[in-house]
Computed example of a mutant assay.
Amino acid sequence: MLKPYRTVPIQDCGEPLLPIDLSTIALTDPPPYLQLGADYQGQSPYVLRQGVLQALARAQTHLSQQAPGWKLLIFDAYRPLAVQQFMVDYTLAQLQQAKGLGSRALSPQERQQLLQEVYQVWAMPSPDSATPPPHSTGAAIDLTLMDAQGQIVDMGGDIDELSPRSLPDYYANSPDPQALAYQQHRNLLNQAMEAAGFLRHPEEWWHFSLGDQLWAWLYNQRHPQSSVIARYGRVAELL
C-alpha cells in the first residue's frame, strides 16, 4: 500500500550531501547499521543536504537555549537504497524469529503480513525516483538527546522499536511521573527540531525531516492554503 506522502511531487534542488558538523552535535559511534552488517559502499551515514545541515545547526542552538549543555545525538541520517533494503530484510528476519517462525521459508501470505509490520517503521526501499525512501534523500534524520553529562537521555523507547511506544505522544496522558518525563524529553526534541523547520514523523518520535516528500506532506496538512512540493529526491540520481 502506497503511503500518502509518497504521492507528493519532487523537484530536486540539487544541493550536495555534506558532513554533519561535530563541533556542537554528537554522533552515535560506530554507526548502528554498519555494526549490523549494512554496506554503505564507502559512503558515510552522517551526511545530509546542505540546507538540512543548516537547519540542524539552528535546532541545536534552540536546544542549547532550552537545556544548556545538551546536544542532539544523531543515530542515523543518509542511507543508500541498499542499506534501506538491508534493514528491511534484517528487521523482517528479527520479527520472524520473535514470532516463533524460526528461519524457515515464509509463505507469501506470512511474508506479506510480517512486512506490513516492518513497514510501520521502515520505508519501502523503492528504486522508483518518484517514491524514494526518506533517508535516501539526505533530508531525513533519526536522532535523540544527550544531556550535559554526556549521557543518552531516556526517551521511553528505542529508536526503530516496533512498538506503540514509538508513537510520539505515547506517554502524553500517563499519570506516572517517569512516563511524563519521557514525554517531556520527546517534546523537548520536537520543539528544537520544529523551531528549525523540521517536521516529525507522526508514528516515530525519533524521525525528523525537512524538504523531502514526508515533510512536504506534513507541511501541507498544516497549511492547506499554501501547499509545497518536495525539494529533495533520491541522492543517487544526483551522482
Rank of each mutant, 00 (worst) to 15 (best):
P4H: 00
T7S: 10
T7N: 06
V8L: 03
V8I: 15
D12R: 02
E15P: 10
P19L: 01
L22H: 06
I25H: 08
T28I: 12
D29K: 09
P32S: 10
Q35S: 13
A38N: 00
Q41C: 08
S44Q: 04
S44P: 09
Q50R: 12
Q50D: 05
Q54S: 12
A55P: 05
A55M: 02
L72T: 00
D76Y: 00
A82C: 15
F86S: 11
M87N: 10
D89F: 08
L95Y: 06
A98I: 07
L101N: 02
L101Q: 04
S103A: 13
R104E: 14
A105H: 12
Q109L: 13
E117N: 12
W122A: 09
P127N: 00
D128I: 03
D128S: 11
D128H: 09
A130K: 05
P134V: 12
G150L: 02
M155S: 04
G157F: 09
D158V: 07
I159W: 00
D160I: 00
R165Y: 04
P168S: 11
A172P: 07
P175Q: 04
P177W: 03
Y182S: 05
R186T: 05
L189T: 01
A196P: 07
A196L: 02
G197C: 01
P202V: 06
E204D: 07
W205F: 15
W205R: 01
H207S: 05
H207G: 00
L210R: 09
D212S: 08
L218Y: 09
Y219D: 03
R222V: 06
H223R: 06
S227M: 15
S227Q: 15
I229R: 04
V235L: 06
V235H: 13
E237D: 14
